[in-house]
Simulated assay, not measured.
Amino acid sequence: MKKISFTNPHRKKHFEFFNGMNHPHFSITTNVEVTDILPHFKNSGIPVHSGLVFLISRAANEVTEFRQRIRGEEVVEHKYVHPSFTVPTTGTDVFSFCTVTYHPEAGIFLKEAAARIDEMKTDPVMEDEPGRDDYLFLSAIPWIRFTAIQHAMHYHPHDSVPRISWGKIFDEGDKKMMPLSVQVHHALMDARHVGAFYENFEKLGAQVGEIFR
Rank of each mutant, 00 (worst) to 15 (best):
M1C: 10
M1R: 09
M1I: 06
K2G: 11
K3H: 13
I4K: 11
T7W: 03
N8V: 05
N8L: 09
K12Y: 08
K12I: 08
K12H: 11
K12T: 06
F18Y: 13
N19P: 04
H23G: 07
H25G: 08
I28R: 03
T29V: 09
T29Q: 06
T30W: 03
N31G: 04
E33P: 05
D36P: 09
D36N: 14
P39S: 13
H40S: 10
H40T: 12
H40D: 09
F41H: 12
K42Q: 15
K42P: 11
K42C: 13
K42H: 15
S44V: 09
S44A: 15
P47M: 02
P47R: 08
H49N: 09
S50A: 01
G51M: 02
G51K: 02
V53Y: 01
V53H: 05
F54S: 05
F54H: 04
R58S: 13
A59T: 00
A60T: 02
N61R: 02
E62I: 02
E62M: 07
V63S: 01
V63A: 01
T64S: 12
E65D: 08
R67S: 05
R69A: 09
R69T: 07
R71A: 10
V76T: 11
K79I: 08
K79N: 10
Y80G: 04
T86I: 04
V87F: 02
P88W: 05
P88T: 10
T92C: 12
T92W: 10
T92H: 14
T92E: 14
F95V: 09
S96V: 12
S96H: 08
T101E: 15
Y102A: 14
Y102G: 13
Y102P: 13
I108G: 05
R116E: 12
M120N: 00
K121F: 03
T122F: 05
D123K: 14
M126T: 07
E127P: 00
E127T: 05
D128K: 00
R132F: 10
F137T: 06
A140D: 10
P142N: 14
P142W: 11
I144S: 15
I144W: 15
R145D: 15
I149V: 12
I149F: 12
Q150G: 13
H151C: 02
H151G: 01
A152V: 07
M153T: 08
Y155R: 11
H156C: 14
H156F: 13
P157A: 05
H158D: 14
H158A: 15
D159G: 05
V161Q: 03
R163K: 06
R163H: 02
S165H: 05
S165E: 07
W166F: 12
W166E: 14
W166V: 13
I169Y: 10
G173T: 00
K175C: 01
K175Q: 07
K176A: 11
M177V: 09
M178N: 11
M178E: 10
P179S: 11
L180K: 01
L180T: 00
H186A: 09
A187M: 06
D190T: 01
A191W: 03
G195F: 03
A196F: 01
F197S: 09
Y198S: 02
Y198D: 01
Y198R: 02
N200A: 03
F201C: 00
L204E: 04
G205L: 00
G205W: 00
G205Q: 01
V208M: 14
I211P: 07
